[in-house]
Simulated scan of single mutants.
Amino acid sequence: MPNERLITRVGGLFALIGLVLLCVTIALAASTASFLASAQRTDGTVVELTARTSTTRDSDGRHRRSTTWYPTVTFTVEGRQYSFESSTGSNPPAYAEGEAVPVAYDPADPRDARISSFWSAFLGPLITGGLGVVFTPLGLLLFVRGRRIARQRA
């Protein structure tokens, strides 16, 4: 396979992946914004930090362990207590046990709740959007470059 065809195909694949990531970003951001627009707000308390440890292998073959801390939050609505574990974790922990945090919850189903902070709400869209912003133009650049090389050789 000539070099220009490989460049064109890799570029097309990168551009496609980037566009998919941008679409995922829009869907995630819209879903989060919709939830936050209709959510009620209250204060909650971090009652526990759950550690999740993952092991990866670096380029030298050594195992690396990393721990991510996920807060469990309780809050009260109309005298009833609810609890949830945040889907966003960090290392070091972003919160301490006993710390008060803002909570957004669905008034029709208070079990559907999340920490109401920018990072907790929009970390997913920021990551997928950032990757999409990198992959799309890089892919388009490679695609166009491959096509130009092919035209020049023809």
Rank of each mutant, 00 (worst) to 15 (best):
V47I: 12
Q81W: 04
A51Y: 06
V46S: 02
R52A: 06
T68I: 09
R65F: 08
I17M: 13
E85V: 07
E85M: 13
F84L: 09
F84N: 08
Y82K: 03
C23D: 00
E48I: 00
T67N: 09
V77H: 13
R62Q: 14
W69G: 02
W69F: 15
T67E: 09
D58K: 08
Q81T: 15
L22H: 02
D60W: 11
L19V: 11
T25R: 04
S86R: 09
L28H: 11
S66Q: 15
G18D: 03
V24N: 01
T50W: 02
Q40L: 09
I26V: 14
V47L: 01
L19S: 12
L22N: 02
S87Q: 13
Q40Y: 05
R62F: 07
T42C: 07
S31D: 13
T50S: 10
R80L: 13
G12L: 10
S38V: 10
A29H: 07
V47N: 01
S31T: 10
F35A: 04
Q81N: 15
Y82Q: 04
T25Q: 10
L13H: 02
V46L: 01
Y70S: 08
T76L: 07
V24T: 04
P71T: 10
V46F: 01
P71I: 11
T56G: 09
R65G: 00
A27G: 00
A15Q: 10
L36A: 07
L19N: 03
T42W: 05
T76C: 05
R65P: 00
G79N: 14
L19G: 09
